[in-house]
Design a protein around this nucleic acid. Structure first.
Lengths: 192, 192
DNA sequence: AAAAGCACTTGATATATATCAAGTGCCTCA
DNA sequence: TGAGGCACTTGATATATATCAAGTGCTTTT
């Protein structure tokens, strides 16, 4: 279980055996069945979570009970609600498993401890957050610049692994369109 | 000029006189006339920039030559292209002054030096990036969940200072709609 | 193997938003 | 101070996308 995370870490930063052990000691394994929640709206999120197997999504629910997918995440990605984690406020989002999944959870406190004692780990975390921010900006740019078809094309170009793995209606939601619209776009695009 | 930045910093973190001086020494003042560029598409962005006066926008230009505003920033905000800064790649964005503005620029190298020698400063920067990420996620959520009117209402609720300060057609662009649509929405909303 | 439930598609229609084209008023600046 | 140029508005129309309603074919469950 931990092996995958260890490999991920060692591909990004140098870690002594002792440091690796420190990390392992604070990891808690969490297995989720398909459709099971990792986080529900209203809960406070207190972890950093790394996915070693499976696929999850973060989504919000509006007043018409429509779900809106904010993010997908698969193996070797981090997931969680940084807003709730940072501010200690109840989450406005839900996270659930699209496939049977396995995660490693590290509590906020233990995570802070790791960052303090392992500077490279701290740097890695900062880099990940910065990259996440840059990716978000790109997505915002797409959302205000592109039409439905262009959004879909960019998505499959940029995240083909995810495009193949998650149901189409969730992709539509992620792209901010209805499932019917995405279905028609795909039909059209296929012709070309 | 530096005074405003010093006050900002001291309201966020504890700094000795010496530390403050270290920061001051690497700040370069940059004044911009209205409409003047801070960054043009294709340039590589190598700074961290803090606004002490004025108002700027970051925007992209699509293949139909339409501008799309990604961000507005005013006094006491940071601005720049983190993607270009992080990756050393040519920027896909433009940044220009909506009003006559004054900024303090710190080169990437000097900035890294400050972060290394002043841990509180490093923490502050990380916090700002994390908050920026959280804000981006919120904006993405709005963009896939809300209709044009709701987007506008959220915007004026959340950023009233900016709403009052920038031209309406730029707000429309920021919200991903045409100026005509925003004009009609405002007329409608006024009735209620 | 039958039944039920999804995910996706397709068609008809409605609606939101974009586009195009004037028109108005205000600000700038020569 | 007057002429031009913006920013915004308004109207008419076009277009993209949403909504509603079936229908089809899988997959899962029993």
């Amino acid at each position: 279980m931990f092996e995958i995370f260890a490999q991920y870490l060692q591909s990004k930063i140098e870690l002594s055996d002792q440091e690796l052990k420190m990390i392992e000691e604070v990891c808690v394994v969490r297995k989720l069945r398909k459709n099971q929640y990792l986080l529900q709206e209203g809960d406070i999120w207190r972890f950093n979570a790394f996915i070693t197997k499976g696929c999850l999504r973060t989504y919000s629910i509006d007043d018409k009970s429509t779900e809106h997918v904010l993010n997908f995440a698969i193996e070797n990605y981090w997931i969680g609600d940084r807003e709730s984690l940072l501010n200690g406020t109840p989450s406005r989002f839900n996270i659930d498993a699209i496939e049977e999944s396995t995660l490693l959870l590290i509590s906020k406190e233990n995570f802070a401890g790791l960052m303090k004692s392992i500077p490279q780990f701290q740097d890695l975390v900062n880099l990940i957050i910065e990259r996440s921010f840059v990716a978000s900006q790109d997505r915002i740019n797409n959302s205000i610049s592109l039409n439905a078809e262009e959004k879909y094309i960019r998505f499959i170009e940029k995240q083909p692994q995810i495009a193949l793995r998650v149901p189409q209606h969730m992709i539509a939601s992620y792209l901010g369109m209805t499932p019917e619209t995405l279905s028609r776009i795909r039909k059209q695009s296929a012709k070309k």
